[in-house]
Design a protein around this nucleic acid. Sequence first.
DNA 1: ATATGTGAGT
Length: 476
Amino acid sequence: MHSFSAAHKLFVEIPKPNVVTWNTMISGYVHAGQFRYALSFFTGLERSHVCADAFSITSALSACSQLSLFKLGSSIHCKTVKLGMANGTVVANCLIDMYGKCGSVEHGVRVFYEIIDKDVISWNSVIAASANSGHIGLAYKFLHLMPNPDTVSYNGLINGISQAGKMEDAVQILSSLPSPNSSSWNSVITGFVNRNRAREALDMFCKMHSRNVEMDEFTFSIILDGIAGLSALTWGLLIHCCAIKCGLFASVVVGSALIDMYSKCGQVKNAESIFHALPNKNLVSWNAMISGYARNGDSAQVIHLFELLKMVRDMKPDGITFLNLISACSHNRIPFEVAISYFESMIDAYKIAPSIEHCCSMIRLMGQKGELWRAERMIYELGFESYGVVWRALLGACGTQADLQVAEIAAAKVIELEKDEGYVYVVMSNMYASFGRWEDANVTRGLMSTKRVRKEAGSSWIEIDVASFSDFLNER
DNA sequence: ATATGTGAGT
């Protein structure tokens, strides 16, 4: 049980905090997953006249890893070099991890080579960093060079291979391990779920169960995610029971995954009772419940829960909350002006920068209202004009509104920015047809057949000459 | 007194 406000209040009363006091605050926030706060205390330490030590550095680096802050992480690396502690085993281990998570294995490997006394964690970190960045061969190399690899070493490899989607290899390594632990199994299950192979994920879950490997929060959250994708309620209920047996009934992580699973299986009532019973709800739990209501078309509950969330102390909506809220507005009968005001409050009151997803959701909303020019203007205002998905959303909105003028602008943009002209051909020919402009529709269809546009099983469109359709549009 | 490696939830 954390008590940040209490700790913070105590901290500010300390007249001259020493390095240990600072470090306790930094690592406390890291452990609680509050990485930004952790880093603000690190900055505070640096601004006061206290010198950072290895403890401050390692906690700060851990925060950088989790947030993928390459620039800050590198600047801390520079500091450690100046302070002469870059080759210290623990500091170097953290640096390897930080570089790995920031997508720069090369830097991590360089740090690894400089360590004089490499310990198990140094090796495991460099293996994980290599494997997770897709350098499986490199990970194998380190694993073979390592003096006494343990389960964690192999887990790094299994995890990387699973992330790369090489599931057969991952399963093979798992079965070759003398004593795989929860993490070994979790990595493989995660790999299957992320590749939309939920059936096999379930299979692994059952094997894990029958071999009496301890199941933790990770196991349940990922398998529930797989179940949600399958909408397999019976499995969901079974796994829910299993989680309770494992003593995880009060876990926020499992609870939030259950809320999501039940609402995706159409069982909002179950989702609701999980939500209300959760003793320590976090923002993820709230967002899961709000999106559950949104998915099931209960806009009144969406707004009700959103208003409640705003009143909870230490809790404030994030970008995902607003995304759910806006999509609920477009899928349900919520007044246009209300939706707009939510979006504006997100930007103005909550200082949340709109993402491409927000932009697309707003385009759909404006499209429904017939405000296509406003949507087009918004794309530029938000600075997303160089993203094809955004124009694709606008083109889609034009299709339902039958607005040829905006559609032609959007169509040209989709062709310019994406390689997917097939979609444009289909939408445009349908639109021309709906306007009775059969000649244009036929020209479009003709272009489709001469260029052999066809939809492939994987949903990608093939070999189309970009110029021909652009010319067709420009001639108009 | 305080620190590092595997995997997760909208």
